[in-house]
Design a protein around this nucleic acid. Structure first.
Lengths: 130, 130
DNA sequence: AATTAATGATACCACATTAGTCTCATTTGT
DNA sequence: ACAAATGAGACTAATGTGGTATCATTAATT
């Protein structure tokens, strides 16, 4: 299993590229640079626009530009946009069946790992990548 | 997205239960204790048997018993059995297109996080859970 | 020897997610 | 008016997850 999907991966790379350009960047430019299918790239950028991470401009001479500061765009945030809430484990047993209700060792241990993972993912920003 | 699937979760709980029993444990017993659908539980146990984590015994009075030592069964191993190789990210861009070939910052940073994640997952054994 | 209680193996199915494609509408500069 | 850009949304294909169903095999009990 992979923990980062193409969606997220392409989004991160696109954001890095855009962050290095003061100018507006078009889909076509990104497609050429990253080799991602055009309609897929469009969809990703539109989503980032909706989430106010990008600004978009229609019409001739239009394209995309960063809206948020690169230092404020966190990898974990992009993951959440494209992959939903990232969770290591939630208990799959109905509560009243779980062998050690309340103090499940598995959940507790996994919880600690989860916290560490998030702490690290939160430290990576587009600024630190680009 | 979730990082641990039901497969893995059920397998871990089953292993914990089995590890606490010196005797042979049947599918029916596990099904009753954990509330997991019987055919699904069977499939999981069969897989653990194939991977030499459990021993199985056919016929009347048969069932499952730990084969490996609980101190030697790692969560990461069970995850790999049921979820495949766990990878945070592999580069989705064809190598010759990747903007910074060889020294992709994204991959490098993610790699560090990945290592930490594995280090922690490796420390959790069935023995430490049960 | 027959029965019964267990697992082994395998094929199948339903659903959700991921990874896209396709088409048409809208906006804007020339 | 036209061309070049994004917006929106429906659609499709492949894959993974979470199962079910069936038949074969083995071994203890009677």
């Amino acid at each position: 299993m992979k923990l980062i999907t193409r969606n997220t991966d392409y989004a991160l790379r696109a954001l890095c590229y855009i962050s290095k350009n003061k100018n507006i960047v078009t889909v076509d430019e990104l497609v050429e640079k990253l080799g991602v299918p055009r309609p897929f790239m469009r969809k990703i950028l539109q989503r980032l626009n909706k989430r106010k991470i990008l600004d978009s401009f229609k019409g001739q001479g239009g394209g995309f530009r960063l809206k948020a500061l690169p230092e404020k765009i966190y990898v974990i945030e992009i993951m959440r946009i494209f992959q939903g809430k990232v969770v290591l484990n939630r208990c799959f047993l109905k509560k009243d069946v779980c062998p050690n209700k309340g103090k499940c060792v598995l959940r507790k241990k996994i919880g600690i790992i989860e916290d560490n993972l998030f702490k690290q993912l939160k430290e990576i920003t587009i600024a630190s990548l680009a």
